[in-house]
Simulated assay, not measured.
Amino acid sequence: MHSAVDESRFERELQIGREIQRGFLPENLPELDEWDIAAYFEPAREVSGDFYDAYDVINGDFLAFAIADVCDKGIGAALFMALIRSLLRQAAVADEGLTAVPEPVGSAGRPLPGAALALRAVRTTNDYLTTNHLHQAYFATLFFGVVDTRTGELIYINCGHNAPVVQRATGEQLSLLPTGPALGLMRDAHFDLGFATLERGDLLYLYTDGVPEARNPAGEFLGEGRMLAMLADPGRAATVIERMRKAVAEHAGVGEQFDDITMLGLLRHPAGPGEYQRTTEPRDDGGDGP
């Protein structure tokens, strides 16, 4: 039988684990001219298998970003999350000079530097996981993207993750469907590149399944349809993320949070430099992202 001292020590260790895990999330999201970035993170338990990340690459002209969901929950998933996040970031920032590739090329006929970066990050991470941790039966869905902040050209690999949505300023919606299997699931997996362009006023919304699968006390899901409908209302990245957070909270009511909830929004300003003021959303240590 566990004593009160044992339970107190275990709770303290879980709290330390939560604090360490939050240290793996970016303390501040990049601040880029003509771009707006916001995020939200709320684990279902003390620790989470979800994560998001964003950082400048290739001399600061490109933004790399990721969102992922490790299978299962709890301490094991959290440790696997920390490993994947570290592997991805290390691979993405290593040897940045080796980024140009002969194919594919952009609309202007020039090499796309983010292509080699994305492929290197995802392939090396998958190789490490399947070589060293396949027997542990953990895997993760992941969306990893690299956007040229000057042109809005986006290169991505979707490893079996919920399809992020590009909410066009025109009102149209584009889903960025999977281009490969989940990370850590199979050796020598093939990952294709996906391409899109974020025009002025377009918002890219990334999420984990804790958003559409949020349940109310009656067991009803929030649903992808309602989530997509709420994206149709324009707003800054932080405004859209907060709108989604409130919708999930209101739908769940007093019900238990069954899954981790993570969101990332990336908006290309609808106007030129100096015409679209940036506001900074403070980070909430109680669970909100930047």
Rank of each mutant, 00 (worst) to 15 (best):
Ala4Cys: 10
Ala4Met: 15
Val5Asp: 13
Val5His: 07
Asp6Ala: 13
Glu7Met: 14
Arg9Tyr: 06
Arg9Asp: 14
Phe10Gln: 13
Arg12Ile: 07
Glu13Phe: 11
Ile16Phe: 07
Ile16Val: 11
Gly17Lys: 02
Arg18Leu: 11
Glu19Leu: 11
Gln21Ser: 12
Gly23Cys: 07
Pro26Asp: 11
Asn28Gln: 15
Asn28Gly: 10
Asn28Met: 13
Leu29Ala: 03
Glu34Phe: 07
Glu34Gln: 02
Trp35Pro: 00
Trp35Asn: 08
Ala38Glu: 09
Ala38Asp: 08
Ala38Ser: 15
Ala39Val: 06
Arg45Lys: 10
Asp53Ser: 12
Ala54Ser: 12
Asn59Glu: 15
Gly60Met: 10
Phe62Arg: 02
Leu63Ile: 04
Ala64Lys: 06
Ile67Asn: 00
Ala68Thr: 11
Asp72Thr: 05
Asp72Gly: 12
Asp72Gln: 14
Ile75Asp: 04
Ala77Val: 05
Leu79Tyr: 06
Leu83Ala: 06
Ile84Ala: 00
Arg85Pro: 00
Leu87His: 07
Arg89Cys: 10
Val93Ile: 15
Asp95Phe: 11
Val101Arg: 09
Glu103Pro: 02
Glu103Thr: 13
Pro104Val: 11
Gly106Asp: 04
Ser107Leu: 07
Ser107Ile: 14
Gly109Ile: 10
Arg110Trp: 09
Ala115Val: 04
Leu119Ala: 09
Thr124Met: 15
Asn126Gln: 04
Asn132Leu: 02
His133Ser: 07
Gln136Arg: 11
Gln136Phe: 12
Ala137Met: 11
Phe139Lys: 02
Thr141Phe: 03
Leu142Gln: 04
Arg150Tyr: 03
Gly152Thr: 06
Ile155Asn: 00
Tyr156Pro: 03
Ile157Gln: 03
Ile157Arg: 00
Ile157Trp: 04
Asn158Asp: 04
Asn158Val: 07
Cys159Asp: 06
Asn162Asp: 14
Val165Asp: 05
Ala169Cys: 11
Gly171Glu: 06
Gly171Phe: 07
Glu172Asp: 15
Glu172Ile: 01
Leu174Val: 15
Leu174Glu: 12
Leu176Trp: 03
Pro178Ala: 12
Leu183Met: 14
Leu185Ser: 09
Met186Phe: 14
Arg187Cys: 00
Gly194Asp: 03
Leu203Glu: 02
Leu204Met: 13
Tyr207Cys: 01
Asp209Ala: 05
Gly210Gln: 02
Gly210Arg: 04
Ala218Cys: 08
Gly219Met: 10
Gly219Thr: 08
Leu222Phe: 14
Glu224Phe: 00
Gly225Asn: 09
Arg226Gln: 12
Met227Arg: 03
Ala229Asp: 15
Gly235Phe: 07
Ala238Trp: 00
Thr239Ser: 12
Ile241Cys: 06
Glu242His: 08
Arg245Val: 15
Arg245Leu: 05
Arg245Met: 11
Lys246Asp: 14
Ala247Trp: 04
Glu250Ser: 03
His251Asn: 11
Phe258Val: 13
Phe258Tyr: 08
Asp260Lys: 09
Ile261Cys: 09
Ile261Ser: 01
Met263Ile: 03
Met263Tyr: 01
Leu267Cys: 03
Glu275Gly: 09
Gln277Lys: 13
Gln277Ala: 15
Gly286Phe: 12
Gly286Met: 13
Gly289Ile: 06
Pro290Arg: 05
Pro290His: 03
Pro290Asn: 01
Pro290Glu: 02
